[in-house]
């Protein structure tokens, strides 16, 4: 199935199968650094596509992973992965935490906590 559009990946992802036919952008605003965690509902959900199950497994609490990280591990590009994760969010299978907004990222107290933590790594 080589068509030259996916350099570096051995297989071509059948996007429509993975996203359950959905192509429009999901309601949830998911960005590359949005953190994803599987919800308890994901534990009991049966009959899900294996790719969905793989994603839910890697985001099982207390583990959470950024959209970019899930995309990289699933060998998918960011936009298709965002669509797929929007579907999972709509079904209540994942929770997502957005990146901090500009007002928060310029908060001195937060920046000092980050600095102190970084000094210990």
């Amino acid at each position: 199935m080589p068509d030259g559009h996916e350099p570096g990946t051995g297989r071509r992802t059948r996007l429509y199968a993975l996203t359950d036919g959905r192509t429009a952008a999901p309601r949830a605003a998911l960005t590359m650094d949005t953190l994803i965690t599987a919800t308890p509902a994901a534990e009991n959900a049966g009959g899900l596509p294996s790719e969905w199950q793989a994603i839910l497994r890697m985001c099982r609490p207390p583990q959470s992973r950024a959209v970019a990280e899930i995309a990289a591990r699933m060998h998918m590009r960011l936009t298709p992965m965002t669509v797929l994760l929007g579907e999972l969010a709509d079904r209540g299978l994942i929770a997502h935490r957005p990146p901090l907004e500009a007002a928060e990222t310029s908060n001195v107290n937060l920046l000092m906590r980050i600095r102190d933590s970084l000094a210990r790594i």
Binding site: D33, L35, P40, P61, P62, S64, P98, L100, T105, I114
Partner: peptide, 15 residues
């Protein structure tokens, strides 16, 4: 829902 480890759930992503 309740989580077993609330602390681990509250981290926010920054980059």
């Amino acid at each position: 829902p309740e989580y077993d480890d609330p602390a681990a759930q509250e981290e926010s992503p920054v980059k």
